[in-house]
Simulated scan of single mutants.
Amino acid sequence: MLIRPAREDDLEAMERLTALSFHLVDQRLMPRELPVPEQRTAAAGANWIRRTRHTLRTDPGGCWVAEVDSEVVGCAISRVRELMWILSSFAVSPELQGRGIGAQLLAASMQHGEHCLRGMLAASADPAAVRRYRLAGFTLHPQMQVRGTVERSVLPVVDRVREGSAGDVDLLDSLDRRTRGAAHLSDHELLLAQYRLLVADRPSGQGYAYVDATGAPVLLAATTRRTAVDLAWEALAASSPEVPLEIAHLTDVNAWALDVAVAARLSIHQGGYLCLRGMKPPAPYIHHGSLL
């Protein structure tokens, strides 16, 4: 087995590996009351490759693969943003798990952030992975997710929330630093290309939310809970009564998001862990699954 830096010509193999690994974990751990998990779509796979190519260029020292007989059997993708180390993706071929490959990959990627004050990653509920993160010194904060279709009759009128653009990035980075302790920097380019951006910039509070095609906020940061609530409702207003949505990565310090979900008639479920080092769970904040 060889642990080596990842290259651009590894991207397709890493995408296939992570798609399969994550799907198998979802199949094994998904509660019965939820829909049967589907494997990553071609469009989602292309976005994964785009994000990882970006990380290879900004953080080559944080991207590693495990190779056996010239085949990629594991990968760890991490990035450093200011003084925060972020693990974006981590997987080992199912048939080779339990042989120490994951531990070596994680150790290699963590060296990239050895000077960082904080660390952050989103984990599934897979017991082996969670144990590895705890042994690496991370605190484990249970996450929740909400699902369903929004009850249209309860949607409130939200004032002074506007469409955002690349011209707002300085404001977004400032909000990132205030809520999670580090800016997203060039990662905003990826987010702007994939999602709709909502911005609130008013004397009573500032905030932003990236919203996917279903109307779910996939990343949200704000200076006040009231502003976060307004951004969440404005995002949900774009949802369809025919298409279910999912808002993942909700921690208990962001109970305001659960209140919005309950009012919108969405169901609440457990959903993995937010793993942190050197910091408390960000709030008001909903973190992105890989860009955090």
Rank of each mutant, 00 (worst) to 15 (best):
A108C: 08
A108T: 04
S109L: 01
S109D: 01
Q111T: 10
H112D: 07
H112G: 09
H112Q: 15
G113Y: 03
G113Q: 08
G113N: 07
H115M: 06
H115R: 15
H115K: 12
R118T: 15
G119V: 04
A122W: 09
A123H: 06
A123F: 01
S124Q: 06
A125I: 04
A125S: 13
A125D: 14
D126F: 02
P127Q: 08
P127E: 04
A128G: 06
A129V: 12
V130Y: 05
V130K: 04
R131N: 09
R131I: 01
R131F: 06
R132S: 14
Y133T: 00
L135G: 06
A136F: 14
A136M: 10
A136T: 07
F138R: 00
F138A: 02
F138N: 00
T139Q: 10
L140H: 00
H141Q: 14
P142S: 07
P142C: 05
Q143Y: 08
M144G: 01
V146L: 12
V146W: 10
T149Y: 00
V150I: 03
V150R: 09
V150M: 03
V150S: 08
E151G: 02
R152L: 15
S153K: 01
V154M: 02
V154E: 13
L155S: 15
L155V: 14
P156V: 09
V157M: 02
V158Q: 05
V158Y: 02
D159I: 01
D159L: 14
R160T: 10
V161C: 03
V161D: 00
V161R: 00
R162A: 13
E163C: 04
E163A: 14
S165E: 03
S165C: 12
A166N: 09
G167E: 13
G167R: 07
D168G: 10
D168F: 01
D168C: 02
D168M: 00
V169P: 03
V169Y: 07
V169S: 03
L171A: 09
D173T: 05
D173L: 03
S174A: 13
D176H: 13
D176G: 11
R177Q: 13
R178G: 03
R178D: 01
R178Q: 14
